[in-house]
């Protein structure tokens, strides 16, 4: 009997140790996959199992990146694309939420434009690229517009349906205190929809990258999308893959930031 507290404690310690061990094993496996992917790539490229002209190799990519980093040109391209993506993401998301709020405010409007929203949502937005570029000129604005337009409609639809899904009884409570429509929106509808809004952030991060890269394909002046299309034209696939690597890294960073924002905004 005397030993029971100490055994309870040791059991708890064992439990902690087990958790830690599992965490470490997951990390190790992730590293193994990472390392074997790149070494296999390098090896098969050198042994010509795959065409090195087409698939390049990790060492060639890192050499190229190093060269481009020394002359500083890569940073300019990264900065341009990053700026456009963040701006496109913010613009698309904010516009989408504002549109959703407008639809919530005017229920009749939402019924009227419902079929148009469905059509706009189904349409591939990148197909609007040529028109946007001619309308806004081949520069930052049209690329940012591409990054925004690709996410704005789906954000509107998803956020609006979240607004509609808020339990009517929260509204009832507020109305029993004499709340007006704006207060109902601010106190119940918007905060209750935060989880959905955050999840549209996550989707929109990815979508904005698509819009911006396609925009840069079309405009072909600078940015990582331009590097990809340029590399394709001069048949330099090391450049294409290097740009892809950078995109992957920054997309992951943006996603992580959104996830951190999520943890900060949603509690309980």
């Amino acid at each position: 009997m005397k030993q029971s507290p100490s055994t309870d404690e040791t059991r708890f310690q064992q439990h902690l140790k087990k958790l830690q061990k599992e965490k470490r094993s997951i990390m190790i496996w992730q590293l193994i996959i990472f390392a074997s992917f790149f070494s296999l790539w390098e090896m098969s490229s050198r042994l010509r199992w795959i065409d090195p002209l087409l698939f390049s190799s990790p060492t060639k990519i890192s050499d190229l990146l190093l060269a481009k980093a020394t002359d500083g040109s890569i940073f300019m391209h990264i900065r341009v694309t990053l700026l456009e993506t963040v701006a496109g993401f913010l613009l698309g998301t904010v516009l989408g939420i504002l549109l959703a709020a407008t639809l919530w405010w005017f229920p009749k409007l939402s019924k009227i434009i419902d079929p148009y929203l469905v059509i706009l949502n189904a349409m591939p937005k990148v197909a609007l690229g040529p028109i946007i570029i001619v309308a806004l000129g081949p520069g930052y604005f049209s690329i940012i517009a591409m990054g925004a337009i690709i996410s704005v409609i789906i954000t509107t639809i998803v956020v609006y349906s979240a607004f509609q899904g808020v339990d009517r009884n929260y509204v009832k409570v507020l109305r029993s205190f004499g709340a007006n429509r704006f207060q109902i929106f601010k106190e119940a509808i918007l905060p209750a929809s935060f989880p959905t809004i955050i999840s549209t952030f996550k989707v929109n991060v990815g979508l904005s990258w698509v819009g911006v890269i396609v925009g840069e394909f079309l405009v072909s002046q600078k940015g990582l999308g331009y590097l990809i299309i340029y590399g394709f034209q001069v048949f330099d696939f090391t450049l294409v893959l290097a740009s892809l690597m950078i995109i992957a890294i920054f997309a992951a960073i943006m996603y992580q930031l959104v996830e951190r924002l999520e943890r900060k905004l949603i509690r309980g």
Partner: peptide, 14 residues
């Protein structure tokens, strides 16, 4: 000046 209590508490979770 009317108070309303519902089947569930409907406290705002945030």
């Amino acid at each position: 000046n009317i108070g309303y209590m519902l089947q569930q508490d409907y406290l705002f979770p945030w």
